[in-house]
Amino acid sequence: MADYDDLQEIRARFPERIVEAAAVRRRRPLLGERGQLMIIAADHPARGSLGVGSRALAMGSRFELLDRLRVALARPGVDGLLATPDIVEDLLLLGALHDKVVIGSMNRGGIQGAVFEFDDRFTAYDTSTIVRMRLDGGKMLCRVARDDMGTAATLEACSKAVSELAGNGLVAMVEPFWSSKRGHDLSPEGVIHAINVGQALGTTSARTWLKIPVVEDMERVMRATTLPTLLLGGDPGDTPDMAYASWRKALRLPGVRGLVVGRALLYPPDDDVASAVDTAVSMLEAS
């Protein structure tokens, strides 16, 4: 594990260096020659979601998480990061975000397991800060729970964020789920319902990208939208080969523009982050 004494000292004594690091960060076009993106996600902790498999507090150590993120971001073929301000700022100070796409996670107020979980308040990035910090877009979780009143406020807030991001020429990454208090509906029909609600948010969809899970019958699911779509690489569980095979197949579909993967790559069963990331990148190169 790296020594983060210098990082802690900067945060205590020279917090202005965060903005300075953002101002000099080397940026890149959203899509490179490959035409697909490999994004590492690290916004789970902000919702109190720290578990990976049987490890309830796997993401509890910020030092270990930063170690794993730095390994992942340094691998060839990794295009960028999706994270909340605290993690983005740590990595800015560590110089790990040059030439990367950086997407700021916006609504993290729906704490995992809370009675207010579906009232997904915007407690992290807002559009003005994403612009000021020279990020490349904002991501919002949009769980449509028909049995929870909190959904109405979330839909309105997401709509506003989509409009504001587009007005500033930035990507609005919408992660829609057809949900209930029992969980997400991950049937093809459920994902199609979620896509149709998510892609209609805001005053324009010109800058909207979708982030959706890989489910059965992805050919039919992807016919529900014309928007650029990133695949959510969830926890492959005890059958990673089957999960990776489904990711590979879905990556070949029209409209799919890459992967957003977090815990599955940062905390693989063998703890070999580099190898897990390289495997995911190889799927893009083969699609």
Rank of each mutant, 00 (worst) to 15 (best):
A124M: 07
L251V: 04
R17G: 07
G255L: 00
R121I: 03
L210A: 08
L170M: 14
F63L: 04
E216T: 10
W209I: 01
D136W: 09
A22H: 14
T204Q: 07
G60C: 03
G80Y: 13
L94V: 09
D185Q: 09
A42G: 03
R26F: 06
T225F: 01
L97N: 09
M173A: 08
M222K: 02
L141T: 10
R108Y: 08
V281E: 00
D119P: 06
S275M: 11
D136E: 10
S105W: 11
V214L: 01
H193Y: 12
D119T: 15
S54H: 14
V281F: 05
E20S: 11
P76V: 02
T84I: 07
A21R: 15
V162Q: 07
A224T: 01
G150M: 08
I103M: 10
Q199E: 13
T225I: 00
S49V: 08
L65V: 09
R207C: 12
R68I: 05
M59R: 12
V214Q: 03
V197K: 06
E89N: 15
I195V: 12
A72G: 04
L265N: 06
G198M: 07
R257P: 04
V174S: 09
A276C: 09
S163F: 10
G233L: 11
V191Y: 02
L31S: 06
R55K: 13
M242E: 09
L57G: 00
V71W: 09
D185H: 11
T225P: 04
W247N: 01
A194N: 03
G190Q: 03
K211M: 03
T279W: 00
F14Q: 14
A2N: 12
A12I: 03
L266A: 03
G113K: 07
E164P: 15
L165S: 12
V215W: 07
L259E: 02
I130G: 06
T203M: 14
A42M: 02
P29K: 02
A96E: 14
M38D: 05
V102M: 08
K100H: 15
Q199G: 09
E156D: 12
L266N: 05
D238M: 13
T229F: 14
G104P: 05
A22N: 07
T226E: 01
S105L: 02
H98K: 09
G190L: 04
E117W: 05
A56W: 10
G198K: 10
F63Y: 07
A276F: 13
E156S: 15
A58D: 04
I40L: 03
I192F: 00
R132A: 15
A72I: 02
T129W: 06
A96G: 11
T239L: 02
R146I: 09
I111Y: 13
E117Y: 11
E64H: 13
S246P: 06
K181R: 15
V171T: 13
D147I: 07
A276Q: 11
D235G: 12
I111D: 01
G77M: 06
R55C: 05
K249T: 15
V174H: 13
V221F: 03
R70L: 01
R28P: 02
P188Q: 06
D90C: 04
I195D: 00
G167R: 07
G237Y: 06
H193W: 04
A83L: 07
T229R: 13
